[in-house]
Design a protein around this nucleic acid. Structure first.
Lengths: 217, 217
DNA sequence: AGATAATTCAAACATTTGTTTGACACGTCA
DNA sequence: TGACGTGTCAAACAAATGTTTGAATTATCT
């Protein structure tokens, strides 16, 4: 029972949104350079001139995809605040686990995370936006955790290095997946790998930080 | 005073080698896809048809660059065997330090390492060769170290995960450099950063492995 | 209903890039 | 010296790709 619904406005948003969704997917799979406008339009069921009409050019579409992705994420996760107070060790486990979920995600919405991860290693004009809007908030959150774990006497540099030590272990499984598949095919199997991996990285990292706790250096 | 030197053989090798060196450099900078044959030839001081003449096509040149790189490395480092027996902790420090040297290398020969690192995240038809000839030997070496550090009761899986935890911390600084530069410009400064980083990663990793030592899991 | 705006479309265009071509120059050998 | 092989070159070619064009279609508004 739709009354007073601007049907055409929906139709308009339809093509544009289909382009954004298709572009997100293809860009995440292939990266910016290897993605053709023709493939995006094919996947979106749109004509090739639609990209120019709605976005201007390929690069602007790419930038718009990140903005769209950010809106979608804010819809899904309105607030990044933790709901329950947890000990920092547990918080780290949650952080690692959720980051790995994103890395190993294979669903319809997986392109959001995958595209960010790809932009990290194949930087384009969008990187500044991605760092400001997606990476820095995550990084700040992690650094807060790490600072808590290290205790009050840790230098900014130490907090930074430890944070990098944590996040690098996680993103490695996305960035170097083709290598890992060749070195150890069994590493990329089964869903249980994610839980084991999260446990390993968390334990390794918590222990790894011990030498630097409470003003030790 | 050159006597009996096949001057033309040298000239012949000259163009071919110049192409290989130039290609190595450009491929390392831009990756396979973003590199044009025209730029390689320009840097090598060769005509554009030279690539087809000497190598057949762009992809074969790319593969040949890795073979050439491997030969060069074998010339420089005939054996990967350690010269002096060291405690495993020290060996790990040496491993991390030398890997970081490669990552932060800026000299004429730096393209060798940089190209391998790039191939890890932007895989091409060369990846199988690179894994077999460059990455797996390094990985096996590191796993030997890690197994020694963990003691005799560690599972293969644990050795693997710990090895990944070490190497991921190192390669992160190459693969995600553009992000790091935006997050923390001071992180990428000064030569002393490399030493500090090597110390940090070594300490973090040695401590990180402690929970898994001597059959702990 | 007609005027205007928005959207879509197929074809064309412009540029880039890897590859090829055939002539020419140079080197080697009998 | 001439025949043959090797290497270089400028120009041309072929294909891919992003972008543009102008007509047609659809939607909106008075």
């Amino acid at each position: 029972m739709k009354l007073n619904v601007p049907a055409i406005a929906d139709e308009q948003a339809q093509t544009r949104q289909q382009l954004l969704e298709a572009a997100g997917t293809v860009f995440a799979e292939r990266g910016f350079r290897n993605t053709t406008v023709r493939e995006i339009c094919q996947r979106a069921g749109a004509n090739i001139a639609a990209v120019n009409y709605h976005f201007g050019d390929k690069e602007k579409l790419y930038l718009e995809v990140f903005r769209y992705s950010r809106e979608k994420e804010l819809e899904r996760f309105p607030s990044l605040r933790e709901s329950a107070p947890l000990p920092p060790e547990k918080k780290l486990a949650v952080f690692v686990h959720s980051l790995l979920l994103r890395i190993f995600d294979t669903g319809e919405a997986s392109w959001h995370g995958q595209l960010m991860l790809r932009e990290m290693i194949e930087p384009t004009a969008a990187l500044d936006f991605v760092v400001a809007e997606k990476i820095r908030p995550m990084s700040d959150h992690l650094r807060g955790l790490v600072a808590e774990l290290l205790g009050g006497r840790a230098t900014d540099e130490r907090v930074r290095l430890c944070s990098f030590s944590v996040v690098s272990q996680c993103v490695f499984y996305c960035h170097c997946d083709p290598v890992i598949q060749r070195l150890d095919p069994e590493q990329t199997a089964a869903d249980s790998s994610l839980e084991k991996l999260a446990e390993h990285i968390t334990a390794f990292s918590l222990a790894g930080m011990k030498p630097f706790r409470a003003g030790k250096k």
